[in-house]
Lab assay of single mutants.
Amino acid sequence: DESNKPILLPNESQSFERSVQLLDQIPSYDTHKIAVLYVGEGQSNSELAILSNEHGSYRYTEFLTGLGRLIELKDCQPDKVYLGGLDVCGEDGQFTYCWHDDIMQAVFHIATLMPTKDVDKHRCDKKRHLGNDFVSIVYNDSGEDFKLGTIKGQFNFVHVIVTPLDYECNLVSLQCRKDMEGLVDTSVAKIVSDRNLPFVARQMALHANMASQVHHSRSNPTDIYPSKWIARLRHIKRLRQRICEEAAYSNPSLPLVHPPSHSKAPAQTPAEPTPGYEVGQRKRLISSVEDFTE
């Protein structure tokens, strides 16, 4: 099969070098950035008060330690540790928490760990991170309901609301924008112990962030949302095809390698009803078989 044979790379090609550099910018793992907010007593309706908090309760602090690993920003190499735009020179604080497994990295933009500057009256330095995160974990210690939209931002799609209760338990629920209701189930609340709260809140936030990324990708319907490693695979396959075309153009005697095509017509299947918005969006999480067989 010609399409699977190794090909020689061009010795000097600026377009090839640019493509390789672009490939280096696509990590081999999925990345997520999640905002974390603490809401104190009497702050449920005040964005400024929430963003001005420099610490929270003892249970909130224990919750943070379970979310991930504490890292010092100045020691991080952005090409190895995903920071979601946090500055490593102290502009966004000294520490944050991050978490990773074999296929993804997540960083938490924690408002109480970011510096509260006197010259920044409206807390814009914090909002440029927190307001651009799709998902926020809100530790609501106010005793009042927290409403979506209290923290203004164009991309605040989903809130994971943590409400501490007695007996070391917590109520965990989801809020989302109306255009996200087909992807996020907000109907079920959970009672979770303090011990298990970081794991549950983190998983709910990661799932909500993946759904938000799919939702946000609708602005470019021709580019369905893939995982990062599938995006790398697609980029490599496009690069291979372009090299083959350039080689055939410079030397017409060489065969032009095309991806294999299936001449056999697909079997006719009964027509199915058109899937609704929710089903269609969830299918976009699934990769096409052509990603692996071309």
Rank of each mutant, 00 (worst) to 15 (best):
N4D: 14
K5D: 15
P6V: 07
I7V: 11
L8S: 14
E12D: 09
S13R: 07
S13N: 11
S15N: 08
F16H: 05
E17F: 07
R18P: 09
S19Y: 15
Q21G: 08
L22P: 07
L22E: 15
L23E: 12
I26W: 05
P27T: 04
Y29T: 05
Y29Q: 05
D30W: 05
H32L: 08
H32P: 03
Y38Q: 00
Q43V: 02
S44L: 03
S44I: 07
N45Y: 03
A49V: 02
I50S: 02
L51W: 04
G56D: 01
R59Y: 00
L64G: 01
L64M: 07
T65E: 12
G68M: 04
L70I: 06
P78A: 12
D79S: 06
V81C: 11
G84E: 14
G84T: 06
D87V: 02
V88I: 06
V88D: 09
E91P: 05
G93N: 13
Q94K: 11
Q94G: 10
T96Y: 05
Y97V: 12
Y97D: 03
W99S: 03
W99F: 08
H100N: 14
A106F: 07
T112G: 02
M114W: 03
M114H: 06
M114V: 04
M114D: 04
V119P: 08
K121Y: 13
K121P: 15
K127G: 05
L130R: 03
L130M: 09
G131F: 15
G131N: 15
G131V: 15
N132V: 04
D133F: 11
F134R: 03
F134C: 02
F134S: 02
F134Q: 02
S136Y: 04
S136V: 14
V138S: 01
Y139W: 02
S142Q: 01
S142A: 04
G143N: 03
G143W: 02
E144V: 10
E144Q: 09
D145F: 04
D145T: 08
F146C: 03
K147P: 11
T150R: 02
T150F: 03
G153H: 07
V162H: 00
T163M: 04
P164T: 00
L165C: 03
D166L: 03
N170V: 01
L171P: 01
L171S: 04
V172M: 02
K178L: 07
K178S: 13
M180K: 04
M180W: 02
G182L: 11
G182H: 10
L183R: 02
S187C: 06
S187H: 06
K190D: 02
V192E: 01
S193E: 02
S193G: 04
L197M: 05
V200H: 02
A205Y: 01
H207Q: 04
N209V: 06
S212L: 07
Q213N: 07
Q213C: 08
V214A: 05
V214W: 15
H215P: 01
H216W: 14
H216G: 04
P221L: 05
T222H: 09
Y225W: 08
P226V: 06
S227W: 08
L233I: 04
H235F: 09
L239D: 12
R240V: 12
R240L: 04
Q241V: 04
I243W: 13
C244N: 09
C244V: 08
E245S: 05
E246M: 05
E246H: 05
E246R: 06
A247E: 14
L254I: 09
L256K: 15
L256R: 12
P260Q: 13
K264P: 11
P266F: 09
A267T: 10
A267N: 08
E278A: 09
G280M: 09
I286D: 15
I286W: 08
S288F: 06
V289E: 13
F292N: 15
